[in-house]
Amino acid sequence: MKRLQLPHWLTDTIYTITGILFSGFALKSFLVPNNFFDGGVTGISLLVHELYHINIAYVIIIANIPFIVMGAFQINKTFAFKTVAAVIGLGLCLLYMPYPAMTSDKLLVSIFGGVFMGIGVGLAIRGGCALDGIEVLALYTGKRISFTISEIILGINIIIFLIAAIKLGLPTALYSILTYYTASRTINFVIEGLEEYTGVTIISGENAAIKEQLVLTMGKGITVYKGERGFLKDSFDVSQPVDIIFTVVTRLEVRRLRNLVHDIDPKAFVFTSTIKEAAGGVLKKRARH
């Protein structure tokens, strides 16, 4: 039987609405009642809210407008339109959804506030929009200066947390850094999921048996590079041809693959690398949104 395939616009809408609800829950139930912060535009909005007591819903919408305009030029107008709708939706959610304050325990607030915020932002990204425009700013700035996007985001967040430490105290700033870290890790998990792929490279004299097991036992596609092995310190001039095997597995399969290779050749050289996106070939992974 064929699986029911929802239209892309419907799945994007479901992701975005769910992301808005989670983000609103994180803000109204954890961060705002306890004067906590996050990074990025959300962090700036929370800081303005704390310092000037302006409703957080209005601040988030106004703070994101410049970045939405940047997004229209840097990415595309569809992205900008979706982001406008998502940010306004988040503002309405903050105004009208009756979220209760969950806890005043600082550690719980920093961890679970970050988790729910990360889930919300991650789901919105999977829906094709952004609830926080900081990455758009980093993309825009990165084309004009010699810093990477990660370095720009880090620099902006350092400034946010320094201001928070000066104005509201060091403990609040430190707990807020924990919130930001938790949120960023959760965002990565939501976007990549359990199926985040890992590239595995194997160099072994028993490559024929390893290739057979990878394809027939694990059902994996493989790519073979022709190389040479040897070149040791005591015998630099001695080498022999070798097939270098490359395959892609989910991170849950890495241990099984390592054990399989070790059983065939305990001396095999195996190294892994994280792959952010993978599609096509024999991979069964569904497309990201």
Rank of each mutant, 00 (worst) to 15 (best):
T13I: 10
N157C: 01
P7I: 03
F25C: 07
V69W: 01
F112T: 01
E50Q: 15
G169M: 04
T141C: 12
E196C: 08
T103G: 11
P171C: 07
P66G: 06
L168Y: 09
F161C: 04
V215I: 09
V215E: 07
P100C: 14
R258Y: 13
V249W: 01
V115R: 02
V254S: 05
C93F: 05
L214S: 06
V248Y: 00
V109L: 05
M218I: 04
T11W: 10
L139K: 06
H8R: 15
A86Q: 04
H262K: 10
K226W: 11
D12L: 12
G227C: 08
A165I: 08
A165D: 05
T223P: 04
S23V: 02
F246L: 05
I191R: 05
V87S: 00
L46C: 10
D237W: 12
R286E: 15
T250Y: 07
N207Y: 09
E253V: 04
P266K: 13
I60T: 03
L94F: 03
G120Q: 01
L232D: 11
E206K: 12
V261W: 00
K28N: 10
V48I: 11
I275Y: 11
L260G: 08
K233P: 05
F269G: 09
V200A: 11
Y140M: 11
S176D: 07
L216F: 11
F36N: 00
Q213Y: 12
P66A: 11
L174W: 03
A268P: 08
Y15D: 04
G219V: 13
Y225I: 08
T16L: 07
T201M: 12
V261P: 02
I158W: 03
E196K: 10
T42H: 02
G281W: 15
L154C: 10
A124I: 08
T223W: 11
L131F: 11
V224W: 07
I68A: 02
R256I: 10
F73D: 06
H53E: 14
L232Q: 11
L31G: 01
G169T: 07
R3G: 14
N207V: 05
I275H: 07
I264L: 09
Y99L: 13
D243A: 01
I17T: 12
A57K: 02
S235N: 15
I145R: 07
I17S: 10
E206T: 09
L46T: 05
R256M: 09
L10C: 10
M117C: 00
G221I: 12
I62Y: 11
F236V: 14
H8A: 15
I111Q: 00
Y52R: 10
V200H: 04
V32Y: 01
L232V: 08
